[in-house]
Design a protein around this nucleic acid. Structure first.
Lengths: 141, 141
DNA sequence: ATGCACCCTGTAGCAGCTACAGGGTCAAGG
DNA sequence: CCTTGACCCTGTAGCTGCTACAGGGTGCAT
């Protein structure tokens, strides 16, 4: 009566292997089994997998999603913790953007200096060979 | 007479294990060995490792760096290929930034809707549970 | 001879999947 | 009844770019 794993996967835009992976790491609860040992999923699984996939698409990592699922299961709790997780993730995303923006500038400058010609006097290669030629701090990370 | 691996590592801001890793995958040529079987690095190694580290800091992946090193060793060649690699990477970085910016918007909206209170009516949890509540296409990928 | 900092090899772990190999199940068609 | 094909099962290895051991050797000072 429940969904087979392939159906669940299709319904949520997930790969079958990924569903099994989520089960293995305990992110998705184990499904009932049919007499033929096939997994059989209930609507609750569908909801939870949708939640997981959505959170993943938003870039939350598995540990965060675990916490969020846990919290979602305790509706009476204060949602400050939810907020904390989401805000922390937002900050991480902003950080990543900032770092990538620095790389973009540096790459742009590097590429802009290349006037064609031979590798021997290619500014891109020169710049890569000598960090001193860089302006910004696209530094250690 | 050459540098020991720890000295090379320090001089380039690399970990010793990483240097050995680069050698193992053939990114850095093998070093001479002392009578005691210690690696002994020449200045050329130092230059190459600096090149590698700089490229890594700029986000190039190992395959790209392999190509760049290869090209750097053929100074008479046209640098169009170098340009192609760098530009491709720049585009990848821009792509990543664009995708992260979408996530940032969506996260911002989600978090902005949370008015405190209990998890039971937390907009963050609701939004995660239902992708339909999203506006942007922070979609599959 | 003893201690210590450094070096060696080899292997396993991280995240988050993905992709097999080598089998079983089930419904349809001949 | 038997086969074909689509699906399912478990278990394990691979991807990227390192990082972190374990279990040993080297080299120099005391």
């Amino acid at each position: 009566m429940g969904l087979k794993i392939g159906e669940l996967a299709k319904a949520t835009g997930t790969k079958v292997e990924t569903v099994r992976y989520y089960e293995r790491i305990g992110l998705l609860p184990e499904a009932e089994r049919t007499s033929g040992n096939y997994r059989s999923y209930a609507p609750a699984h569908l909801d939870q997998l949708n939640f997981i996939r959505h959170a993943r698409r938003l870039g939350f990592d598995i540990a965060d999603i675990r916490s969020l699922l846990d919290l979602a299961g305790q509706p009476e709790r204060d949602c400050a913790e939810v907020d904390r997780i989401a805000s922390g993730h937002l900050r991480a995303v902003e950080d990543k953007i900032a770092r990538l923006a620095l790389l973009r500038e540096e790459l742009n400058r590097m590429i802009g200096q290349c006037r064609g010609g031979s590798v021997g006097n290619c500014r891109i290669i020169e710049t890569l060979a000598d960090h001193g030629l860089c302006e910004s701090d696209h530094g250690g990370g």
